[in-house]
Every structure is written in structure tokens, then in C-alpha cells.
Design a protein around this nucleic acid. Structure first.
Lengths: 167, 167
DNA sequence: CTTAATTAAATTGTTTGCAATTTAATTTTG
DNA sequence: CAAAATTAAATTGCAAACAATTTAATTAAG
């Protein structure tokens, strides 16, 4: 019943205080960044055993998702789609290539570019992978509507965050 | 009370199998996982220059957030709070210690435990850090209400994802 | 045309995450 | 009490992310 401890006091302060001066602004559970970070890690852990059956890690799966949509893309195009750079993608692609799901080849028209293409094994893998999103949806205990709504919100946030950097 | 909390995110399961057979289920822009992953990375990039001024990386900042709330915690307690294990935390904490913001010391009562405590420099850093959340909120171009709502939704999702793993 | 600027990947080096194992301390059991 | 089980960190090894640099190819400028 004692209301005079620090926590109760700070959380019951008048909302007139500017956000920048709010003592509670640094509380972990208030941070959107941490909510994102910890949710993303939790999601990756949920995917891990499912993707292990396909022989893929989570970032490798993302690469395959792009290739199943659009085969024969450059490393840059892949990077624009996934918001990753060649420093991340080059070794990642080499590992997927070693797994046998894709091929990397210099473009004939422009030797600077590397074209990433699916192998037959890579195309075949899609059939198995189609079950993954369903399994994850079940495990996350969310309706498809909720998943879609949150996904849309996050796309908007991501746009704002990327715009906020260059401004 | 139910093991899975009664939030808006955990109410219903996907209705039936059709989702698994939907050809569009694998489209990158439909994936909640990728929305989370890419948003989280974008958020980290936004924080990076701000935290660099404090001499911290983003995960190091998260550790400091916990310590500013509760000083003198074990590595395990830190891990429960951040959803990270000792394999991640031990080297991370050593780097923050090298920066001079915290100390690591074996507990006298239980020599297995390591107690992590703030130094004076670590406590002082909080004053500067208080401005960070405000700067990020501005850059993300979201209202505080939107940020709070999304944070709450993500906490619920995270709970579901973690529960979904062990089930 | 040929030198300079630009572009695309790859490389290098640092910091995460995390599974699996190891080490050391504490508890539990027999 | 002593061996076994458990627990807490640390260690090891691998796979991302990413900044910064390098290499090689293409394009632009003089």
C-alpha cells in the first residue's frame, strides 16, 4: 500500500514533463528498439529448428525467399531487397552456394556484377519451404490478420527509420 | 490464468490449411519475420552514431539500461532481462568493463556468480544517455503513442514466440 | 584516347548471437 | 561425509552484420 517508493512516484508524475527529461525514458521495457531487437531474436530462434531441416540459416532463408521471387539477380539487387551490403552477402552467398542451392557467376555484360541464380536443388527446396510460414504462424499464436497488420506497421516504421538516418 | 496471456495477439490460431498451400506465403514482403529483422537492423543503424558519442555499441547500451535500473546484478539476471546467454554477455561485459563503465566481480556468497556493477563513469553516463531516446523518437517520425502501442504489441508477440518454442 | 571518377564485389577486422562444451562452485543424494 | 547432479560463467567455434578498405571493371571528363 505504500506509494512512496521511487517506482510508484516516477510512474505517477504529471505527464506535463517533457519526454527528454523524463527519468523513466531509459527504462528497458519502454524502448521500442529493445522490443524490436528481442522480438527479432526470438523469431530467429523459432525459425532455427525449422530451417535446419532445410539446411539453411535464417539469413540464408531470406536470400532464398528473394531468389524464389526473382531468379538471377545481382548481389546489389539482393542487398537492396534485404537491406544488406556485400560485406554481409558475399560470405553468406558462398555458404549457400556450398550447400548447393545457388550459383554465383560474373555477368558477361558487366564483369563487375555477380549474378546469383538458383540451382535445381534450390528451386526444389521451395516446395518444402512453403510449409515454414504456416508452422511459424501457428507457433507465434497470432491470426493471419494480426500478423499482416503488424507487418504493415513495421514496414512503415522501417521506412521512417531509414529516412531518419539520411535526413 | 492461462499460460499464454490474453492479449490481442494471442487470441486465435490460423483457421485452416489453405495458408500453407498459398503460393504467395513465401513472398518476402509478407513475412513478419523479415519486417522485424529489417526494422531491428534499421533501428540499430539509427542508434549507432548516437551511441558512438557515448562510447557504446547498441547491445552494450542495452546492458547499461539494465544497470541504470538495477545495479549489481549477476550475469544470469542480465541475461534474463535481455534474453541473452553468457556466451554473448561475457565478452560483451568485458568490453564495457574495458571502456570503464562497469566492474565484474565474483560474488562472495556464491563464487559461481559474477556481479556486474556500475563505476562512477557508468553512473555519470546516464545523464548524457537520457537524450538518446528522445533523439531516436524524433528520427523515427512516430508519435510517442504510436511508439508505445507498437512496443506493447511487440512484447506480446515476443511472449508468444518464446512460448511457441518450448511448446 | 587516356586519365580520373565511379561503381560492384570482395576483403579485412571488430562486435555480436548462439550452440556446445568446459571449468569451477554449490547442492543434492546415497 | 563423499559421489553425483546441478548451476553459473567462461570458452570455443561458427555465422552473421557492418565499417572501412581494396580490387577490378566501367563510365565520364579533359
Amino acid at each position: 500500500m505504500n506509494q512512496r517508493n521511487a517506482t510508484s512516484l516516477s510512474s505517477s508524475l504529471p505527464s506535463a514533463a517533457p519526454a527528454a527529461l523524463d527519468e523513466s525514458a531509459l527504462r528497458l521495457d519502454k524502448q521500442l528498439c529493445f522490443a524490436l531487437y528481442s522480438s527479432s531474436l526470438a523469431m530467429t530462434k523459432l525459425y532455427k529448428p525449422l530451417l535446419a531441416k532445410l539446411g539453411l540459416t535464417y539469413p540464408q532463408y531470406l536470400v532464398m525467399l528473394v531468389l524464389w521471387e526473382e531468379d538471377g539477380v545481382t548481389v546489389s539487387a539482393l542487398g537492396e531487397r534485404l537491406f544488406l551490403d556485400s560485406g554481409t552477402l558475399t560470405p553468406l552467398l558462398k555458404r549457400i552456394e556450398a550447400q548447393g542451392f545457388l550459383r554465383r557467376a560474373r555477368s558477361a555484360e558487366d564483369e563487375r556484377q555477380v549474378i546469383v541464380s538458383l540451382t535445381q536443388a534450390g528451386r526444389d527446396l521451395r516446395t518444402t519451404a512453403v510449409q515454414v510460414p504456416y508452422a511459424v504462424a501457428c507457433a507465434s499464436a497470432c491470426s493471419l490478420e494480426q500478423i499482416q497488420a503488424l507487418t504493415t506497421e513495421l514496414h512503415a516504421l522501417r521506412s521512417n527509420l531509414i529516412a531518419g538516418r539520411s535526413d
